[in-house]
Measured scan of single mutants.
Amino acid sequence: NITNLCPFDEVFNATRFASVYAWNRKRISNCVADYSVLYNFAPFFAFKCYGVSPTKLNDLCFTNVYADSFVIRGNEVSQIAPGQTGNIADYNYKLPDDFTGCVIAWNSNKLDSKVGGNYNYLYRLFRKSNLKPFERDISTEIYQAGNKPCNGVAGFNCYFPLRSYGFRPTYGVGHQPYRVVVLSFELLHAPATVCGPKKST
Rank of each mutant, 00 (worst) to 15 (best):
N1S: 08
N1G: 08
T3K: 10
N4L: 07
P7N: 14
P7G: 09
E10N: 06
V11P: 02
F12P: 00
F12G: 03
F12E: 01
A14H: 05
T15W: 00
T15C: 01
F17P: 05
A18I: 02
S19F: 01
Y21R: 03
W23S: 04
W23K: 02
R25N: 03
R25D: 03
K26N: 05
I28F: 15
I28M: 15
I28E: 01
S29Y: 07
N30L: 02
V32S: 10
Y39H: 14
Y39W: 14
F41Q: 11
P43K: 09
P43A: 07
F44H: 12
F44M: 09
F44G: 13
F45S: 15
A46V: 15
F47T: 07
Y50H: 03
Y50T: 01
G51V: 01
G51E: 02
S53F: 05
S53Q: 12
S53L: 09
K56A: 13
K56I: 07
L57K: 03
D59A: 08
C61L: 08
T63V: 10
N64W: 07
V65H: 01
D68I: 01
E76W: 04
Q79G: 03
I80Y: 01
Q84A: 15
T85V: 10
I88A: 03
A89D: 03
D90W: 04
Y91V: 05
N92H: 02
N92I: 01
K94W: 00
K94C: 03
L95T: 01
P96N: 05
P96A: 06
P96L: 00
P96R: 00
D97R: 09
V103K: 00
I104W: 11
W106M: 07
N107D: 05
N109V: 09
K110Y: 08
K114M: 12
K114T: 11
V115K: 14
G116N: 14
Y119A: 15
N120Q: 14
N120R: 13
Y121W: 05
Y123Q: 08
R124W: 02
L125Q: 15
L125N: 15
F126L: 10
F126C: 13
R127D: 05
S129H: 12
L131S: 03
L131K: 02
K132R: 12
P133N: 05
E135S: 07
R136F: 03
D137Q: 02
E141M: 08
Q144H: 08
A145C: 09
A145N: 13
G146W: 06
G146I: 05
G146Q: 08
N147Y: 11
K148R: 13
P149Y: 09
C150Y: 05
V153M: 13
C158I: 04
Y159S: 14
F160M: 14
F160V: 13
S164V: 07
Y165F: 05
Y165S: 04
G166R: 12
R168Q: 15
R168C: 08
P169V: 03
T170L: 08
Y171F: 13
Y171H: 12
Y171P: 10
V173W: 14
G174W: 09
H175D: 15
Q176L: 03
P177M: 05
P177R: 01
V180H: 00
V180Q: 00
L183E: 00
L183V: 05
F185S: 00
E186V: 04
E186K: 08
E186P: 05
L187K: 14
P191V: 07
A192G: 14
C195N: 12
P197I: 15
K199L: 11
K199P: 13
